[in-house]
Write a protein that binds this DNA or RNA. Structure first.
Lengths: 252, 252
DNA sequence: CGTTGAGTTGACCATCGTCAACAGGAGTGG
DNA sequence: CCACTCCTGTTGACGATGGTCAACTCAACG
């Protein structure tokens, strides 16, 4: 399944307050989905999956494209099938806090408030399975196993948030960066990636805003880790040379 | 309803890994509950409330008493009816991050993992409504309105976590303290307290570990705010003299 | 009256933020 | 093809914010 087939469905959001959800539709083939095994859909049997296919819309977002904005009415839930999403909130003075990254297999929109509490953007070209709110809600309510999976994800969501709080509250800059590299690697590992490398699709500024640091400090810290032969930096990637040392630095 | 009537049910936990849940039982009278209107129980009609009463156990924890420990098997959910609870996690090197405080009307244990992901302690003498996991789960599964309320609370929980992340990642010490005072006041206001004062049942160390600061910095910051006539500090309380200024300092 | 624990204050210093310059790659237009 | 800009990332110099260590106050308690 190539990304190319979705290029034509690239979205231009119309931004209206009460406008209908502005996402274009493309065909969905759950049977071929790369993330089925690691996503909430794994709770479904073949029959239920066909039901889900019926309400799913495959959508593609280009790099830096907005998926939704803080304050927007929630009208959709998203299952990430490819790419990377950043979640963030802004202060009025412009400061930005990245609240997390969502990777293939992750779910977006579990908070189920009336309005989104944060914004979401594609970090790189990203494909998602979009579910309309009413359809998805009624499917969930009639499917306890799916509900349970979503509960599980919600717990994971809270866990992510707490992990970030631990990092920002108690760790030094070096500890935060080491923790970030390892935890992102672990999530990519779950999706089948290699264990001695972590892909960094997001720019340094995103990492900085996620870790509560400046871009300069992130850059400097990575340089120091490289100079100490703990990692090797390459564009959009970091190789782990001394994972043991990195783990020590990340504390826990 | 006086706290005194629960003194005899004070708990000593037996700590065993597979031991039955060690909480002592006392009578529950939901009709007289002070937090019914602001807790999840507000989703229930009279009949359902009687069902809930049947599975609820009122328990009291003394100051600094452990409610559960990180890693413990989850066997209970808690509705706080009085007092204050701190949630926290420890690093192996002893650093502590307080993940939040739970006040009357709040629910504790929504994460519904097999094991607790953080520890919980009473900050001051605290009363809770305890629900056994299997009983509560089956009650919830047969009551969509209660389920919806719990979902709502879970969203609130994620919101609290994100707010803390915003504070730790982007705010200065003074901004964090101002934000902490205001947000705690707002939650106490919801429960009917006055608007120009915030009760601080927790010691400075808890505030410091919540805000990712040291106890000295918290103390100094409060002193500065008092010297600038923004607040007045009194034991376990802070009065708001210039709330407008405090709001400015808290950013947003 | 001594002890203990919570909170405050001061002196000093490390970490990390700020500001600035620079390097390298991608895209653009002459 | 080259010059140019733009964007991302790196590096350096310097200073402010907040951490560390220590002393001290005060109230509660025996």
């Amino acid at each position: 399944m190539t990304l190319g087939s979705y290029v034509d469905s690239r979205v231009v959001r119309n931004g209206g307050e009460n406008a209908p959800c502005p996402y274009r539709i493309a065909g969905v083939d759950c049977g071929n989905c790369a993330v089925r095994a690691i996503s909430v859909c794994s709770a479904l049997d073949a029959g239920e999956r066909i039901q889900l296919e019926g309400i799913a819309q495959r959508t593609r977002f280009g790099s830096k494209e907005t998926i939704f904005l803080e304050g927007d009415r929630t009208c959709s839930f998203f299952n990430i099938t490819g790419g990377t999403v950043r979640m963030f909130r802004l202060f009025r003075n412009g400061r930005r806090q990245v609240l997390g990254f969502r990777l293939p297999g992750d779910f977006l929109g579990l908070e189920l408030d009336d309005r989104h509490r944060f914004s979401a953007e594609a970090v790189e070209p990203t494909t998602v399975c979009r579910f309309g709110k009413p359809q998805f809600t009624s499917l969930v309510e009639s499917n306890p196993r799916l509900l349970r999976k979503l509960h599980e994800r919600t717990g994971q969501e809270i866990g992510f948030a707490h992990d970030q709080t631990m990092a920002l509250g108690q760790r030094s800059a070096q500890e935060r960066v080491a923790w970030f590299l390892l935890s992102l690697r672990d999530r990519q590992k779950n999706a089948g990636s290699a264990t001695d490398v972590v892909k960094l699709p997001m720019p340094r500024q995103d990492i900085a805003d996620f870790l509560g640091l400046t871009i300069e400090t992130v850059s400097r810290t990575l340089t120091v880790l490289a100079r100490e032969n703990v990692i090797v930096i390459s564009p959009r990637k970091v190789y782990f040379v001394d994972e043991c040392q990195l783990t020590k630095l990340a504390v826990s």
